[in-house]
Design a protein around this nucleic acid. Structure first.
Length: 932
RNA sequence: GGGAGCAUAGCUCAGCUGGUUCAGAGCAUCUGCCUUACAAGCAGAGGGUCCGCGGUUCGAACCCGUGUGCUCCCACCA
């Protein structure tokens, strides 16, 4: 059949994916084979395919398809993450467009919309992965809010609660005023921003002058060590300071980047050793604009060098201030509402946005004479990972998970390489986090997610239970035991008569998304439903490899390890491969906000999925960032075309008449390529083991383009009217098949197509199902022979170009004796490729010949055509200079007593040989020169 | 502020335990070619103070120190 001129991926890719699906090739069931499992990092259900996914999933697909080639039972589990914040934000936006306010809906109504949205738009990304060619076991598609998954999350919550790992408490959390929810520390990104550092004067309360330290202490609750030392400092104060400072000072100046929080100030704090302010400690001043009286306290936390050395203390809106407040038992005044507007407690600007107030209050302070100066200032501000708004530190009641006991074993398995990290540098990052781990804020003020199984009565007492019924029972038990009523009645099965007087409401909050995804490698195999005799789990878990981005090492990787060890007493995966960050040509991270992320589906349409995979993988060195440029996809497309044309040539050769001749000279190309193929197969195996996928692909690319197409096919092909050698013909077909297998993990579609175009295949004989075996012994002698042939051929071509000889002008070739043994039996190849009429082996200088160098040996050829002697002369002079210089350096080395004394014998031997070679070479070149 | 990593051809990167597989590959560039699979091609070639400076060594792209320049992670300096 006639093949199209060029390869057209669009015509074959969908066809093959459907074929693979129909045949169920990606579906895995436990069997006797060794298993290789990967669970996909579940993309957000709201997600669409971007470069990060393309890289991440191409890598996984390569690993799995390669494992399958090596005979493993492979299983790649697909799925999506419910992504509570991201999805809820999308649903809220969708509702807003419809003119519906989220808050006007009941929880049930909202969730109905959310599910509807999920069914409609969720999981688009999974369809896109099919376009990319990813061989996922679609029968196993999971979702982190599937019914069983939901139960598993709740069960784990309850279990951890019962173990005492989960508790409820008021702490300073990161508040996202847009999503109106708490965030974990990991969900906050710090960015440097340009701010204004405002210097604000607080007027002192003059009446304080008479107040004694004991009054001050009374006004706070309790004596602390801090206060004692402060007292002694004050006593040691020098008279100079009193005169120089106190008399003139009627105000104290602080520096702040958040002037709007002034309204929540409860103290001014200075360093106890700060001579400038010692006399003020224990006195009072007034909060500007609202004139609330607050104390001036001292604490070593203060950096005397920064700003004025005075810190305004606002416990409600800063974690440090909060800690200071705790220490000094200060009150908390929360001046912000949950949406980031000013609260009643602020007294001023009530209901106005925090950023508007920041500007306004400066104006008002200015007007009231409180501003000393304003400076430009750069500082780090926390932003919400999801909504990108500025985070507010906020005190609130949340659910927490203690991490320390779970972190220890999870740290160990990574440090002792039970789980191997690639690249290993991430072990450090991991250790640092695990050793300084903090409790995990797991509650989110959202509706989309796993609802916290806590039930409250009217008094705010709560119980943890799976269902309302169980909660009711548990609550009555609690009440009974509290009232000391632990008699017959409490064990009575008759719950009903006790229920009516209890009204329970479930906690409105949901759990952090990662509190469900940390169960992913277990729960996709039905862990929670069947823990004891779960054949699937036993077979597939621990999984082989996790491929993910380093950004989520704490969010996800660490927590999966903890969950695996806690609940399965086993690691969840044997190795973790961290891919790099995808950047654009200018090195910028690809992101939606920058708009520098290319349209992946458009690229697949344009270049074909194989070419896109090629482009992504060739540019992705192990563990480094990927600087992505569409031109590499172009290269992939061109490569596909090259394969297509090689196929066309094979077809032509296959249709030729056959000859049978198995002399070494005729079949040498096939003997050689077999060795070369094995050599590369071994190298590729090694590269893939170390996740050097770009290296592996480069080697395969070169094996196909250079070795197979440029050398091998040229060596075996015969003139149009000549028959084709049977041995070479069948080998050429065989090698092509093997090459397609080797390339298949990287470019699955075209390799499948070519595999079928090579010959008629039986039903089910598809490349995706094939395995390969690797030779262990490689015949190096054959490889060396071929290298010499290649070098001679290239050298002659080079001379032809320089001498303006046509490629087919006939020559008589003279080679050194050293090549006789290696080349004599296969010299037909040489003759054919060089258009040599004869080949002679001699160490003598050849007259009227063109000389050239191969390796270190002098070769010649003669031709009937006119030769340009001057060119030849120049070349020889250049060579001569080089070898003379080389000889001097070698002699110098050998003349160095220390070198001879210290270097290994084989090194010295090598140097001696180099010297002799150089001497001989110089002799021959000089002889040639005299002949010219 | 703490930690990690990187610096090799115009670009993107290989260079394992220091020693001719040690200065490499692919793009890009240049020069010939429409040679009967492929001009999305074929054949050939030219490109590098291996970031600077010191040190260890007979010998350093490689080991050590230091400087410079990038990148990333962590961190509560208002």
């Amino acid at each position: 059949m006639a093949l199209s001129k060029n390869y057209i991926p669009q015509e074959v890719e969908n066809k093959w994916y459907e074929h693979w699906m129909t045949k169920g090739y990606f579906n895995s069931v436990p069997n006797e084979k060794p298993v290789y499992t990967i669970v996909i990092p579940p993309p957000n259900v709201t997600g669409v395919l971007h470069m990060g996914h393309a890289l991440n999933n191409s890598v996984q697909d390569v690993l799995l398809r390669y494992a399958k080639l090596k005979g493993y039972n492979t299983c790649w589990v697909p799925g999506t993450d419910h992504a509570s914040i991201a999805t809820e934000a999308k649903v809220v936006a969708m509702l807003r467009e419809k003119g519906i306010d989220k808050n006007a809906l009941s929880r049930e109504e909202f969730l109905a919309y959310a599910w509807e949205w999920k069914e409609k738009y969720g999981g688009i990304i999974l369809q896109q992965l099919k376009k990319l060619g990813c061989g996922l076991d679609w029968n196993r598609t999971s979702f982190t809010m599937d019914e069983d998954y939901y139960k598993a999350v709740i069960d784990v919550f309850i279990d951890l609660y019962n173990k005492g790992h989960i508790y409820r408490g008021v702490k300073m959390i990161n508040w996202d005023p847009k999503a109106k929810t708490a965030l974990s520390d990991e969900e906050v990104n710090h960015k440097e921003v340009n701010s204004k550092l405002v210097y604000v004067k607080y007027f002192l309360s003059m009446s304080d002058a008479s107040e004694s330290m004991s009054d001050v202490r009374d006004s706070m609750s309790g004596n602390t060590i801090e206060e004692t030392s402060r007292t002694s400092n004050l006593e040691g104060e020098s008279p100079e300071h009193r005169t120089s400072n106190i008399e003139h000072r009627t105000s104290i100046t602080i520096a702040t980047v958040r002037p709007e929080t002034i309204l929540g100030d409860v103290a001014i704090c200075v360093h106890p050793d700060d001579e400038r302010y010692k006399h003020l400690v224990g006195k009072y001043c007034y909060v500007p604009l609202i004139n609330r009286k607050i104390p001036i306290i001292a604490d070593e936390y203060i950096d005397m060098e920064f700003g004025t050395g005075c810190l305004k203390v606002t416990p409600a809106h800063d974690i440090n201030d909060y800690n200071l407040g705790l220490k000094h038992k200060l009150p908390v005044i929360d001046t912000l509402n949950e949406d980031g507007t000013m609260s009643e407690a602020a007294q001023l600007y009530i209901g106005e946005d925090r950023f508007d107030v920041r500007k306004k209050i400066v104006e008002d302070l200015q007007a009231a004479g409180h501003i000393e100066k304003i400076e430009d200032y750069k500082n780090q501000v926390g932003f919400s990972e999801r909504t990108d708004v500025v985070i507010e530190p906020r005190l609130s009641m949340q659910w927490w998970c203690k991490m320390e006991t779970m972190a220890k074993p999870a740290l160990d398995v990574v440090m002792n390489d039970e789980i191997k990290f690639y690249p290993p540098k991430f072990k450090n990052t991991y250790r640092h986090w695990m050793e300084n781990i903090k409790d995990w804020c797991i509650s989110r003020q959202l509706r989309w997610g796993h609802r916290i199984p806590a039930w409250y009565d009217e008094q705010g007492n709560f119980v943890i239970a799976k269902t309302e019924e169980e909660a009711l029972k548990a609550m009555s038990d609690v009440r009974d035991s509290m009232s000391g009523n632990t008699n017959l009645e409490s064990t009575s099965p008759n719950i009903e008569h006790r229920i009516p007087d209890i009204i329970l409401t479930q906690d409105p909050d949901v759990l952090d998304t990662w509190f469900s995804s940390w169960l992913w490698p277990m729960e996709v195999f039905g862990w929670n439903k069947n823990k004891e005799h779960n054949k699937e789990l036993d077979y597939y878990y621990p999984t082989a490899t996790l491929v993910t981005a380093p950004e989520i090492i704490f969010f996800w990787v660490a927590r999966m390890i903890m969950a695996g060890l806690e609940y399965k007493q086993q690691i969840p995966f044997q190795q973790v491969y961290f891919t790099g960050i995808v950047r654009d040509k200018q090195g910028r991270k690809m992101s939606k906000s920058l708009g520098n992320s290319p349209d992946l589906l458009g690229m697949i349409d344009n270049f074909g999925a194989d070419a896109v995979r090629f482009g992504v993988l060739i540019a992705s060195p192990a563990g480094n960032d990927l600087l992505f440029d569409e031109s590499t996809c172009e290269q992939g497309k061109v490569f596909g075309n090259k394969l297509w044309n090689a196929l066309k040539l094979i077809h032509i050769l296959n249709e030729k008449e056959r000859s049978v001749d198995e002399t070494e000279s005729v079949i040498f190309p096939s003997l050689w390529f077999e060795q070369r193929l094995h050599e590369v197969q071994l190298l590729v195996e090694n590269d893939i083991k170390e996740f050097k996928l770009s290296e592996a692909l480069k080697k395969i690319y070169s094996l196909i383009w250079d070795d197979y197409c440029s050398w091998y096919l040229e060596w075996i092909k015969t003139a149009p009217d000549q028959p084709m050698n049977e041995y070479n013909s069948s080998k050429a077909n065989f090698f092509f098949e093997e090459l397609m297998k080797l390339l298949h993990p990287f470019m699955p579609f075209i390799t499948e197509e070519i595999y079928h175009q090579l010959k008629e295949r039986a039903e089910g004989d598809d490349i995706v199902q094939q395995t390969i075996s690797h030779a262990t012994d490689i015949n190096r002698a054959i490889l060396e022979q071929a290298e010499i042939l290649k070098h001679i051929i290239t050298a002659i071509r080079d001379v032809r170009v320089k001498q303006h000889l046509k490629p087919k002008d006939e020559i008589a070739l003279f080679l050194p004796e050293a090549y006789k043994q290696k080349l004599q039996a296969i010299e037909q190849v040489l003759q054919k490729q060089c258009f040599a009429t004869s080949i002679t082996y001699t160490n003598e200088t050849v007259a009227n010949a063109i000389s050239f160098v191969v390796g270190k040996l002098q070769c010649y050829f003669t031709t009937e055509k006119e030769i340009d002697n001057s060119q030849q002369f120049e070349q020889l002079k250049k060579d001569l200079d080089y070898y003379k210089g080389f000889l001097i350096s070698v002699e110098k080395k050998l003349g160095n007593e220390k070198f001879v004394a210290n270097a290994k014998p084989e090194i010295i031997e090598g140097e001696v040989k180099k010297k002799n070679d150089a001497v001989e070479k110089i002799r021959i070149i000089e002889e040639s020169l005299t002949l010219l």
